[in-house]
Design a protein around this nucleic acid. Structure first.
Lengths: 228, 228
DNA sequence: AACATCACTTGATTTGGATCAACTCCACAA
DNA sequence: TTGTGGAGTTGATCCAAATCAAGTGATGTT
């Protein structure tokens, strides 16, 4: 069964035994989302958290002026909204929407809490997963406040190309997973600035052809972006 | 015993029974820190997490260029570094230093994990506490990316004056808890900008006399800062 | 084939905050 | 009392990114 296989691969469930996994698979619902569909809104009661099977889900907040801030974009295998489920107010603090057609697994809060009560290793695993995301947020905060736009774009490309293939000569090709406008917002810059930032990375061996980005020397880029 | 009383008041232990609290008090060490003392550095093994008795502890990261980014400043009653203790790498991702003379309680990881295994309600409580901090980080990210310097300064004042007294006529007086330079860094702005931002809040009834800030109409300020 | 639309790119101008620099005001020490 | 240094303010200038605006080049539609 495909569902079980996917759950198994999620970082959250890496160390969970087969039997528990089967039980989890039985208690969660698979959900299909069309492009742009809302999964939950900020302020909704946090009844579930999610694991992504395929597609991309963006978590964002909308300011009073209607401006959107993307908190994170989660991809296949990743889980999100765990923290909201355990918050005091039991509300989602952000808005979640799919940016492509997507499939997610919905895991109900109640089942999850039962599981934690039964199995403390599971609680520890969960704490690890949440703290990893917290670490990501801290890094994000650092990026936004202390890096220039080109550095942020470069760091994004590097983070992303880690998951993709490397050629024999060290050259890497990244295929951008979604619209440049989404990436821009995620990096807290405007699309125009993104475009110009990409151009400024040319001296470091970065060339773009539509969504396919070639990085001649990841090392030189990493050096410029001050990562790794 | 003072230690037990303080632990009891910490949000993390609010719902924990007296007996467990006594046990916790027995297993943790009280530590005095002089101004500027390092508590742990980024990369250190995360053996403990902390609760503040008094004083202020700042968590920061230092970029390769030597620039400091303050992630958060924690005050009396607050706990921090819970997440690091549960991360996969078991390392602190940030640097912690006291900004005044301070006293903290140090709680060892090992004891804590034992406690979670024994008591699932405790694990849930902890999950709640961590997710609250995560929510804070998300808000911080939003502030930094979408608010101007004066708005951020105003939001800081409002957040802070909630913990302080309000006069009968609605006027509030905030006494800044630490150096303006620290506040500036926490808000990701330069001290000069902080100074100018404070001046720009004058039309909204904000006047400063050294560290004592008077806010004539918190509502007007909140409106300008787009909070609450 | 003509048109509309969407996803960018490129150019010109503006602006918020950083930087550099000087100056005031206090606390504290010799 | 007179210095000395740190905290904070104020002024002048600079720069990165936002904004406003126009254009390109795909893709799909009638």
């Amino acid at each position: 069964m495909e569902l079980l296989q996917t759950i198994k691969k999620s970082p959250l469930f890496l160390t969970i035994d087969e039997e528990t996994l089967k039980e989890i698979a039985e208690h969660c619902r698979q959900k299909k989302l069309y492009k742009g569909q809302e999964l939950f809104a900020a302020g909704d009661t946090a009844e579930n958290f999610y694991i992504i099977l395929n597609g991309w889900i963006k978590l964002s907040r909308i300011s009073r002026e209607g401006e959107e801030i993307i908190i994170h974009v989660f991809g296949p295998g990743e889980s999100f909204a765990e923290a909201a489920v355990f918050s005091d107010k039991k509300k989602y603090p952000v808005y979640a929407q799919s940016i492509e057609d997507a499939e997610v697994i919905e895991i109900p809060r109640s089942f999850f809490i039962k599981k934690i009560e039964e199995d403390s290793r599971f609680a520890l695993r969960l704490l690890g997963s949440i703290s990893a995301h917290q670490h990501y947020l801290v890094q994000q905060l650092e990026q936004v406040t202390s890096r220039t736009a080109p550095q942020r774009v470069g760091a994004f490309l590097l983070r992303f190309c880690k998951r993709q293939t490397e050629n024999a000569d060290g050259t890497m090709v990244v295929d951008l997973p979604y619209d440049k406008a989404i990436i821009s917002t995620r990096l807290s810059i405007k699309p125009e600035t993104f475009s110009r930032a990409l151009a400024k990375l040319e001296p470091y061996g970065v060339t773009a052809d539509k969504r396919a980005i070639t990085i001649k020397s990841p090392e030189a880029l990493a050096d410029f972006c001050d990562v790794d």
